[in-house]
Structure formats: C-alpha cells, structure tokens
Amino acid sequence: MESQSLELSCSPQRDYGSLRGLHLYHRSAQSQTTLLSMAVNSEAKVDPQHRGRLQHSEGLDSLQVNVTLSHLQPSDTGLYVWELSYREDSVDQIITSTQKVFLFVERTERSCQCSPSYGPVILIIFTTAALLLLTLIWLAVEKCVKARHHLRPQPPVPIYEEMTRKQQSAGNPQNNHEAASHLEEVNFPVYANPNIRQPQDNYYACPRQLALRA
C-alpha cells in the first residue's frame, strides 16, 4: 500500500567464505536500479532517488543485514533481489541470494485536504451560482407569462346578443325598407336616371313651352 514501509533482510552464508560486498537491486518492468551497495572498507552507497527513504544497518560483519524502505510509491513496484560477493582462497564468488521479494504498491485515493480559508470562498461561489440560477428561472417564467398574455384570444360575441340583434332587424321591415330607399336615393341621384326629368325654369332652354301673349 502507498505510504507504507518495506523491510528487507539478508543473512550472509559464511560457508562461501568471507563476505566482501553486498548489493540490493530493484528490478522493474523498465529497468534495474541498484538501491544499496556495501563493500569492505568503504562507505555504503545509496541510490540518490531513494536517499532519505532507505535506511540500512551498518557493516557487513553482522549476521543479518536489514534494509527499510519507507514512504512507498507506485514506482517502487517490482522485484527486490540481494546479491552477495564472497572471497575464499583469493577467489571471488558472486552469489545471488534466494531471498527475493516482489512488491506491488497500490495507489491510494487521496482526499481533498482543503485549507480552512477556502470554506468562505466556496460558500460565496455556491451562493452566487444559486442566485444566478434563480434569476434566470424568474426571467424565463416572466417571459412565458407575457407571451401567453399577448397570445390570449379575444372572447367571442355571446350568442344571445347576436340573436337579439337579428330579431330587432326582423321586427322593423318598414324601417329597413325606408333606410334602403334613402340609401338608394343618396347613392343613385335623380340625374343618374335619364327617364326622370327635372322641371326647367329656364325658358330660354326650351322656347316651345312659352305662351303667346296677346
């Protein structure tokens, strides 16, 4: 699991001679990294990328070498292998330890750790968004109400008023006839009808009608 620690240990085999060196390798799918190198009469060397997270016991004279890798990361996933170097009768011998460890570091979901000062800011943002949403809803409702009022149809004329008007028109046929005659006289004057002659007072226009004087 991420952020936890890994403890590795190796017990040298004295049957192969005196221990002259020790290496701890990390083998991943992409590469191999030497995490720790220890040799006689020299300082231990730790990989720079793991320095600060890797701790080890001092010296090769101990019966067991312990290594602790803390604050594990997903990149620490892989196979951890020990390699030991022995010398016996001026002959160097390199042996890979059977103590191999495969590690899989699972990524953990990190919760959002917001600063306390962000609380009022977040509250203001949510309040502003809510007010803006309410304003938009109110404007939309008002627009719909105005559109519905504008498109409202005119009320039809009641049937009983129309029937009353027709009855009044049918009950006064004489008035209707006189009104029609009056309209006809107005629209069609007498001079439009050639059969109707107007009395002529101008005697010069028609001399045949003058009476002979004694």
Score class of each variant (00 low, 15 high):
124 I>K: 07
81 V>F: 00
163 M>G: 03
58 E>C: 02
96 T>L: 13
188 F>P: 03
152 R>C: 04
39 A>V: 07
79 L>K: 12
148 R>H: 07
87 R>V: 08
190 V>D: 10
117 S>T: 10
5 S>G: 05
100 K>A: 05
176 N>C: 06
98 T>W: 03
2 E>R: 13
88 E>A: 13
139 L>I: 13
108 T>Y: 11
135 T>G: 14
1 M>L: 12
123 L>T: 10
121 V>H: 05
209 Q>Y: 00
184 E>P: 00
213 R>W: 02
66 N>K: 06
35 L>V: 11
1 M>C: 09
170 A>P: 00
66 N>C: 02
102 F>L: 08
64 Q>M: 05
188 F>T: 15
200 Q>L: 14
33 T>N: 07
98 T>G: 13
16 Y>I: 00
204 Y>D: 15
84 L>G: 07
32 Q>M: 07
197 R>Q: 07
196 I>P: 01
203 Y>V: 09
1 M>G: 14
171 G>D: 14
36 L>W: 01
74 P>N: 04
155 P>Y: 02
34 T>L: 12
142 E>F: 03
101 V>F: 03
194 P>R: 10
204 Y>M: 11
11 S>W: 01
162 E>C: 03
60 L>C: 01
158 P>M: 07
150 H>N: 08
36 L>C: 02
81 V>H: 01
89 D>Q: 14
167 Q>G: 06
155 P>C: 03
188 F>G: 09
200 Q>A: 12
190 V>N: 04
1 M>R: 08
127 T>S: 12
178 E>C: 13
136 L>E: 11
125 I>Q: 10
62 S>A: 15
116 P>D: 09
107 R>A: 15
55 Q>P: 00
36 L>V: 13
131 L>S: 11
214 A>I: 10
141 V>W: 11
50 H>R: 06
177 H>A: 10
210 L>D: 01
34 T>I: 07
179 A>C: 02
67 V>H: 01
46 V>A: 00
89 D>V: 08
30 Q>W: 08
193 N>D: 14
33 T>Q: 12
194 P>I: 08
160 Y>L: 05
94 I>D: 03
82 W>T: 01
20 R>K: 12
123 L>S: 11
88 E>L: 14
67 V>R: 00
35 L>T: 03
11 S>L: 05
119 G>Q: 09
209 Q>L: 05
159 I>E: 15
100 K>N: 04
196 I>S: 06
37 S>N: 06
145 V>I: 09
143 K>E: 09
131 L>A: 13
154 Q>E: 09
149 H>F: 05
32 Q>C: 08
200 Q>F: 02
177 H>G: 00
186 V>E: 13
